[in-house]
């Protein structure tokens, strides 16, 4: 454990992923080899920050986004995405501590938002720098994409945030649209 913490600190300090290369990771047993129940709560909070509850409908937590991400992590993500996801959780928590000297879960919503905006910028720069590398993916983009995909395919996201008709019964090629009308949940 101590060794893992040391590696994490070095990683944060240098801001790189070099020390998390497979050789070092395989020599120490990381508890981040799966998504734990605690992680599910953390992911709920990450998701809720990306898509929050609003006056009209629930957000990602209400859509059980943490459980969704665990299922997708366990059974659908590629090996490479799983690594980005797990390493990302470590980096994410470290980023919160570095910026606010406290755990992410203890931040208030303004701080969470500030942290996420910073990570979004970091992800955008990473994307530009890594753009030519096939499959390069920043963990924040992965968290965000999974939150969006999971939320809008959830019952709340599909039926409350967007519009869902299980059995439309008819097709109208042209109806009027007023700005603010919700999009159809499925095509």
């Amino acid at each position: 454990m101590k060794r893992r913490d040391a590696i994490k600190k070095i990683t944060v300090f240098t801001g790189g992923v070099i020390f998390l290369s497979t050789g070092m990771m395989s020599s120490c047993k990381s508890p981040r080899d799966r998504i734990s129940d605690e992680d599910v709560l953390l992911l709920d909070e990450i998701g809720e920050t990306i898509i929050p509850q609003t006056s009209d409908c629930g957000g990602a937590r209400a859509a059980k986004i943490g459980l969704y991400m665990k299922v997708m992590f366990d059974e659908c993500l590629s090996t490479q995405e799983r690594k980005v996801f797990l390493d990302g959780l470590v980096k994410f928590e470290a980023a919160a501590r570095e910026k606010f000297k406290t755990d992410f879960l203890d931040l208030d919503s303004a701080e969470k938002k500030e942290l996420f905006l910073g990570l979004q910028g970091e992800a955008a720069r990473y994307g530009m720098n890594q753009g030519k590398v096939a499959g390069s993916l920043h963990y924040f983009d992965l968290f965000k994409k999974m939150t969006i995909d999971g939320y809008f395919t959830s019952e709340i996201g599909a039926t409350k945030a967007r519009r869902y008709q299980a059995v439309p019964g008819q097709f109208k090629g042209c109806i009027s649209y007023v700005k603010g009308d919700r999009a159809w949940a499925t095509s």
Binding site: T49, I50, I51, P52, T54, G59, K113, F116, L117, Q120, K144, I148, F152, A161, R162, Y177, K179, G180, D181, R182, A183, W184
Partner: peptide, 14 residues
């Protein structure tokens, strides 16, 4: 649009 209510609103419209 990074995160939050604005993102949710944006992704709820065609």
């Amino acid at each position: 649009v990074a995160i939050g209510a604005e993102l949710k609103q944006t992704l709820s419209e065609p």
